[in-house]
Simulated assay, not measured.
Amino acid sequence: MKAIVTGHSRGLGAAIAETLLARGIAVLGLARHGNAGLVAACPQLFHERAIDLSDVAALQSWLGGDDLRLFLAGCTSILLINNAGTVQPVGAVGSADNAAIASALNINVATPLILANAVIAVAAEVPEKRILHVSSGAARSPYPGWSVYCASKAALDQHARSVALDRVPGVRIASVAPGVIDTEMQAEIRATPLARFPVRGKFEALQRNGQLADAGECAGRLVAYLLDDGFGAEPVTDLRD
């Protein structure tokens, strides 16, 4: 079994990669920045590639080489965890920079869909392929200032639903909302000006009241679900349900 994790350099992505490695699963991390801690801890099992996941052309160039095929060679089960994401740009419609919208959609939507397509195509003969999109409650609950973020997470949910209907042999997929986690993204949300994100107080209260989930604990639950026999029975789910 081998796994690909996007956004492995910090936060939930780093915790997911660490959890997989602790189970003896080889991991390929894709992110703009590296994770020296994982390299030092698991030099035999952990591999990483520096890719700006907002740059679709760079991603396609990498996929055009042999790197992915060589990493997946010989395995009988593949895990793809599309974790990388951004909450930016935040603000009412009409206030965002168009380039920032395009970059966000590349990271949050285009990259996960391209990677899912590429992994399934490259590993057509591999018996089992499991894809987990890290979604959000924002996919189902709209927030003022988060039109881009909410729309991008809803896109992942719909992608999972549609792929499940394709019934490609050996493919299981789920778009999973992990809950509100204590990561740098949450700190970024709390630092957003109220004029751009009027419901900031809700997230400040979650942090103040100790209601943010620990990244390591959440990663453990996500990985346990990904490896469970029931994974993919529901293409869209929430770990808190």
Rank of each mutant, 00 (worst) to 15 (best):
L53Q: 05
L53S: 00
S54Q: 10
S54L: 04
S54N: 06
S54C: 07
S54K: 01
D55A: 08
D55K: 04
V56A: 05
V56W: 01
V56N: 08
V56K: 07
A57Y: 05
A57P: 03
A57R: 14
A57T: 09
L59F: 00
S61V: 11
S61H: 09
S61A: 15
S61K: 11
W62M: 14
W62K: 10
L63P: 06
D66C: 13
D67E: 15
D67Q: 11
L68C: 10
R69W: 13
L72K: 09
A73W: 06
A73L: 04
G74S: 08
G74H: 01
G74A: 11
C75W: 09
T76R: 13
T76H: 13
T76K: 09
S77I: 07
I78D: 00
I78N: 02
L79S: 06
L80T: 09
L80S: 05
L80F: 12
I81F: 14
I81E: 06
N82W: 03
N82I: 07
N83Y: 02
N83R: 04
N83A: 02
N83M: 11
A84T: 03
G85E: 06
T86P: 02
T86C: 12
V87C: 05
V87S: 08
Q88K: 13
P89S: 08
G91E: 07
G91A: 14
G91W: 00
A92R: 11
A92W: 04
V93F: 15
G94D: 04
S95E: 15
A96P: 08
A96S: 14
D97W: 10
A99C: 07
A99S: 13
A99E: 14
I101F: 04
A102T: 14
S103T: 13
A104M: 15
A104F: 02
A104E: 02
L105K: 01
L105W: 03
I107K: 00
I107H: 00
I107T: 14
V109E: 01
V109Q: 01
A110V: 14
A110N: 08
P112F: 00
L113R: 02
L113V: 08
L113S: 13
L113C: 04
I114D: 08
I114Q: 08
I114K: 03
L115C: 07
L115A: 07
L115H: 07
N117Q: 12
N117T: 13
N117I: 05
N117C: 13
N117S: 14
A118K: 07
A118L: 02
